[in-house]
Design a protein around this nucleic acid. Structure first.
Length: 565
RNA sequence: CGGGGUGUAGCGCAGCUUGGUAGCGCGUUUGGUUCGGGACUAAAAGGUCGCAGGUUCAAAUCCUGUCACCCCGACCA
């Protein structure tokens, strides 16, 4: 590609719209343009990267025996109504009516659609196993799109769905996808961790996420260097707490004026937050639920939701809190609370002589002990794991970091095949729902995750596998005929060798060309300059490494060797 | 959805307090000098000051409303 011909421009100053480094670089390098919050155009250079990632995914999916098709992004409501997700998705789903008043949406994910279409194809056990995939746009009206393509409202997803006759079949299909995902992300040059993930209300027997560690990630993952345990923090089990040996004191009501929050109570009593138990109120499928954890802990709403097996779980509003506690917000406690259930974190019974809200404005109880002063049928693990907690498997120290979820594989089971009537006849002519798995990769997000992991102060550093072009040839002086001629020669040889190459034939100063080449992250650079007359060029890898002078042909050979490794 | 912030030329910003000819840098166009890490110089093009009302002789500036975007939080099959 001749840069003089390309639709391409870089910016010297970072657009104010971007905060995250990878997002800034995508904009500065002219690879994406924002059209609306969470909606982006991929410019030619960015689109080339995107297509290379797409091709890697397609190759590995095909190699794993999956078959590609494409569904529509425009979908009528009834499929989602059949599974119940028309309502579950709520306003995150982009819904509208057609001219006849029929409800439609832009597909946020396609489980129902695949189950519906495949039910016609999979009437016999002989037709399975099958794994089908598409690479297609998804639409989710996120409340808060973030960091460019990390969380956008339109994005391209490779979503695959497997259909098996039994659990063993699902396990095999799942494993194939797992292996394919490893190859895909390896080939994209990403460093990633595979973590256990929540299967939640979706049911299903297992789920793993492919995570790229990054500060801008929306997820938090827990990992253990000792035993290799790795899980999404929303899933990570918390250890049993050692029972306190303190002797029990008398329970006593204490006047605590204007001390409602844990912070205020810590100041009021001069005790650490771990001496308190806080009670939070939730609305779970319309019922009021009280949830208790130690004062310095956070509730893990995923665990709570799973324990309650509820579809919706929201923190109660102030009005509901006042209603349930007969007090202002901040004084909730288990004693006499008007809640349908009180869920107690398993750490609470191990505590002694702690403090709780009295369900009366400006009052708390101290010297409280579980078992003597209150009890619950629901004692379980509902807190969020935190730094300092031991590994749930081996007890060693854990690491907790933010991460970007680039892929997710999921043993769905029969939820959607049952909802959509995707059933087959087995050997005994008995009808059963297909056992499904679903497997997703966010392409745009993967692309940006690569930048998060591979950039420096000068710009992006694309791995060879996904670079928009692998080589850039820079003639230093556009007016220098010798340099231009040698640059053209090298350019042509690289093209002939099948190497994706660009030549910066623009009438620009050398500095501009170097800066742009670094910014857009082309992995290999050949500079044709001072010694062009002798047939000598300079080779420099974008990532670290010094420039070396080589005979032009040697440089071509070196690049071909490097890229094909 | 709660909190905070920002909308002025393609990009980055100043001007707004105290109303009176819309500015600067980058980029773009043309000429000249330069030419190995974002050159210098001269000239030029480019703006419904987010939008809608209102106050006023006069609004980028004051008032009201509204929309968009960004950040933090909540949420996220």
């Amino acid at each position: 590609m001749r840069m003089s011909q390309m639709l391409f421009s870089t910016q010297r100053e970072a657009p104010s719209e971007a905060e995250a480094e990878s997002h800034v670089l995508l904009l500065k390098a002219g690879m994406i343009r924002r059209l609306a919050a969470g909606v982006y155009a991929l410019m030619p250079l960015g689109f080339r990267v995107f297509k290379r990632i797409e091709n890697i995914i397609r190759e590995e999916m095909d190699a794993a025996g999956a078959q590609e098709l494409i569904m529509s992004a425009l979908l009528p409501a009834e499929y989602y109504q059949e599974s119940g997700r028309w309502d579950v998705f709520g306003t995150e789903m982009i819904k509208f009516k057609d001219r006849n008043g029929r409800d439609f949406c832009l597909g946020p994910t396609h489980e129902e659609i695949f189950a519906y279409v495949l039910r016609q194809e999979l009437q016999s056990y002989k037709a399975m196993p099958k794994t089908i995939y598409q690479i297609q746009s998804k639409y989710r009206d996120e409340r808060r799109p973030r960091f460019g393509m990390i969380r956008s409202r339109e994005f391209v997803m490779k979503d695959a769905y497997s259909f098996d006759v039994d659990e063993q079949g699902l396990d095999a299909s799942y494993q194939k996808m797992y292996d394919a995902y490893c190859r895909i992300f390896d080939r994209c040059g990403l460093q990633y961790v595979v973590v256990h993930a929540d299967t939640g209300a979706m049911g299903g027997s297992g789920s793993q996420e492919f995570m790229v560690k990054s500060d801008i990630g929306d997820d938090t993952i827990v990992s253990c260097a000792g035993c290799g345990y790795a899980a999404n923090s929303e899933l990570a089990a918390c250890p049993d707490a050692a029972a306190s040996t303190e002797t029990m004191q008398q329970m006593e009501k204490v006047h605590t004026p204007n001390a409602g929050t844990i912070e205020e109570l810590v100041g009021f009593f001069g005790l650490g937050a771990q001496k308190f138990a806080k009670t939070l109120l939730y609305i779970a499928d319309g019922k009021i639920i009280a949830a208790m954890v130690r004062g310095d802990r956070e509730i893990n709403e995923t665990k709570l939701k799973n324990y309650l097996k509820c579809a919706s779980l929201d923190l109660a509003g102030a009005a509901d809190v006042r209603q349930a506690t007969s007090a202002e917000v901040g004084f909730a406690g288990p004693l006499g609370i008007k809640a349908d259930r009180v869920i107690v974190d398993k750490e609470i019974p191990a505590m002694r002589n702690f403090l709780i809200g009295a369900n009366e404005t400006d009052y708390h109880y101290k010297g409280v002990n579980y078992g003597r002063d209150f009890c619950s049928d629901d004692v379980c693990d509902i807190r969020l794991i935190e730094k300092g907690d031991p590994c749930p498997v081996c007890g060693a120290e854990i690491e907790i970091v933010s991460a970007i979820e680039v892929g997710h594989i999921f043993k769905l089971g029969t939820k959607y095949s049952e909802a959509m009537g995707c059933k087959f006849l087995d050997r005994n002519a008995k009808e059963s729902p297909c056992i499904m798995g679903s497997y997703g990769i966010g392409l745009n997000r993967t692309m940006q995750a690569v930048i998060e992991q591979s950039c420096d102060k000068d710009g992006i550093i694309w791995p060879d596998s996904v670079a928009p072009y692998n080589v850039i040839v820079i003639p230093v002086g556009a007016a220098n005929e010798e340099q231009m001629a040698l640059a053209e020669e090298v350019y042509q040889k690289l093209l002939d060798a099948g190497i994706e190459t660009m030549i910066d034939d623009r009438d620009e100063r050398a500095g501009v060309k170097f800066k742009d080449a670094d910014l857009i992250g082309i992995p290999h650079r050949i500079t044709v300059g001072r010694r062009a007359a002798e047939g000598i060029v300079e080779y420099k890898p974008r990532r670290a490494g010094k420039a070396v002078e080589l005979n032009a042909d040697e440089a071509v050979v070196k690049i071909i060797e490097t890229i094909n490794v």
